[in-house]
Design a protein around this nucleic acid. Structure first.
Lengths: 214, 214
DNA sequence: CCGGTTCGTTTCAGTTTGTATCGGTCGAGG
DNA sequence: CCTCGACCGATACAAACTGAAACGAACCGG
């Protein structure tokens, strides 16, 4: 759940349920930040933290179900940078992650890029602007959000349920047509003929895909 | 009580019960770390934090009685480094202080800059002045505060609720229009066409974003 | 106190977005 | 090759949201 939320907010997330493996990957791969659950199997979060602290320079956040003061003090003493008790409130986690990333370096490099380019269609999240062959296209909020979602998954089909969940934040009830409508309006603005769409293609019974020639 | 405990643990502590005076002393005297209570008289902790953040580079910890999620998110967004809810457990406070002091001594540079530049728009917090392509722009207090908040989060959407909480100090009631009005006035002054805004863009149903090229 | 500036509230108009609905298209099974 | 039902596109309309003018309260320097 945490992973999914962070993904939706522009982080590139990798998960690992085994503590020892997590430690190994933290040391060998190149992460910007670590979020550790204290109650991991095989090797608990505190041990992982102690093991990697001298090899991993980014911020380490600890999560726990127990609101245990001892855990918190111990976590911080073995080198963690922050400590949150479950249930984790997503916005709080996000705010704290940003604080630590800002502090630890001014270049949060490896997160999701804010610019995606697909076959002459450039989409910039940080300015919420879109260019089609260098010509600016004015999209509304809803249209942009849809396009960004499709672009982030360009070349692979995005399930209708996923689109609905991402754009509305709730589960798809099975008979809503608002997605189709957004697609319709988006196509019109990016000059895609609905009868023979070259960019936003429908996949009958599944969802939509932003075509990328590759 | 907090002061006494920290004194016993090797810190040299100075206290101030008046918020405005605290801000003044933080800027003029030379502290290593600040612990702010959100419920201070005269000037609340969040205001103090915002006021001093560009002049004080050490860690800032916020304390509050209410376990309010909004307070926490806002605290972190105005530049605080940590947030603890009362009753404060002394050992936890101590552990967190040490973490932050260790971090801040590692990176003597890190802190929010007093000057933010976004695509030809330069905003200087210390003199509260704004330049658009080197041409000075006269903004009122309210307009400047809004712009600074957006600029500090340039490239990412700032939630309406966060803006309201930050600018008014109270929770958003859901139907206030003063934010829209400020945005409207700000746009006019920085020469942003409201029908086709290139800098301050609305994100319908969410809030506003200051576009940053990337 | 006075005039001017700033800022929030009210209000209305314009835009955006979802819902309802109708017509067209696709494709499996005969 | 035909039929039927499921699915998709798009128009029309209504609800929700935003922009900003008008007004007045609060503030500020003198």
């Amino acid at each position: 759940m945490v992973a999914e939320f962070l993904s939706q907010n522009g982080f590139e997330v990798k998960t690992e349920s085994d503590g020892a493996k997590a430690a190994e990957r933290l040391i060998n791969e190149d992460f910007d930040v670590a979020v550790l659950d204290i109650g991991l199997p095989n090797m608990d979060g505190i041990s992982v933290c102690r093991a990697v602290r001298s090899h991993f320079s980014g911020p380490i956040l600890m999560l726990t179900a127990r609101g245990d003061e001892i855990d918190e003090v111990v976590s911080l003493e073995v080198g963690a940078d922050d400590y949150l008790t479950k249930p984790v409130r997503p916005r709080v986690l996000l705010a704290r992650l940003r604080v630590h990333l800002r502090r630890s370096s001014d270049t949060p490099s490896a997160s999701q890029p804010s610019l995606i380019e697909v076959d002459g269609l450039a989409i910039d999240a940080s300015s919420r602007s879109v260019f089609l062959d260098s010509v600016p296209i004015e999209l509304t909020t809803a249209e942009f959000d849809l396009l960004w979602l499709l672009a982030a998954n360009a070349g692979s089909v995005v399930d209708r349920e996923v689109i609905y969940q991402e754009l509305h934040g709730v589960r798809y009830d099975g008979l809503d047509r608002s997605i189709d409508l957004r697609v319709s309006r988006l196509r019109k603005k990016i000059g895609d003929d609905p009868n023979l769409p070259q960019r936003v293609k429908s996949v009958r019974g599944v969802g939509y895909i932003l075509a990328s020639k590759s």
